[in-house]
């Protein structure tokens, strides 16, 4: 589902490579934690997967597409197969829960009938049925993140990328979000989650990929956050 083949990424203003000769493969339906200190290359990995950036060298395949050969105008179609969740939720403050999720379908031209069918379904999946008319600032942090997950998942993507989705949440709420991501993973969606949250990684016992200074230092199935920390 995601294949990095000897990928390096150098940003012009930095001396050190953000990613250095990274090779890894993530299979369809896997749940993968991406761990490592700040600046280790986790965000670069996610950006390259989304084709927000191109690698300096190496090959990337995502959802069967060779990103090197993918022309600019086809990039939106790649992104429709990838859902993305961020630490800061990124909801539109002047739109209700329903409208926030519907927005993701509207802007890729989905018909109203499909929106009226899919949005309530995904709201039920994330446990927010009954709150569709709330505005984001009337929700708790955990609920806001559920809206963001619902928005990322409403189009049934093949891959869900989560960049520290529990970073702004307290431990109890984080567990709820993790259960939600696990449920989404069980529908067959590949989940890649970058995180600093040690207890979550240790509890879930999923595959762990650890980066340091842009290099792969550990790739362990049913792993824990780290030995040293």
């Amino acid at each position: 589902m995601i294949l990095f083949d000897n990928v390096s990424k150098l940003y012009p203003t930095q001396n050190q490579a953000a990613l250095e000769s990274l090779s890894l493969e993530i299979e369809k339906g896997e749940f993968v934690f991406l761990v490592g200190p700040s600046g280790s290359g986790k965000s670069t990995f996610l950006r390259l997967t989304l084709r927000e950036d191109k690698p300096t060298s190496g090959r990337i395949r995502v959802a069967g597409k060779d990103l090197h050969r993918l022309s600019n105008w086809k990039v939106p179609h790649l992104r429709r197969r990838i859902g993305t969740v961020f630490q800061d939720f990124r909801l539109l403050p002047n739109k209700t829960v329903f409208e926030n999720i519907a927005f993701a379908l509207q802007v890729i031209g989905k018909p109203r009938r499909q929106i009226n069918r899919d949005v309530p379904a995904v709201l039920e999946l994330v446990g927010l049925d009954g709150k569709e008319d709330r505005l984001p600032d009337q929700l708790s942090g955990g609920e806001q993140q559920r809206v963001a997950v619902a928005r990322a998942f409403v189009n049934r993507p093949l891959i869900l990328l989560a960049d520290e989705p529990t970073g702004n949440l307290d431990p109890g709420t984080s567990v709820g979000i993790m259960k939600l991501l696990d449920r989404i993973n069980r529908t067959g969606t590949t989940v890649v989650m970058a995180t600093h949250d040690q207890s979550i990684v240790d509890q879930m016992r999923k595959r762990v990929i650890e980066l340091e200074h842009g290099k792969l230092v550990r790739d362990q199935s049913r792993g824990v956050y780290g030995y040293t920390r």
């Binding site: 105008w73 992104r79 993701a104 890729i108």
Partner: peptide
């Protein structure tokens, strides 16, 4: 930003 993320066309 969100439009780009969810794959709206240019």
């Amino acid at each position: 930003g969100i439009m780009r993320l969810v794959g709206a066309s240019n």
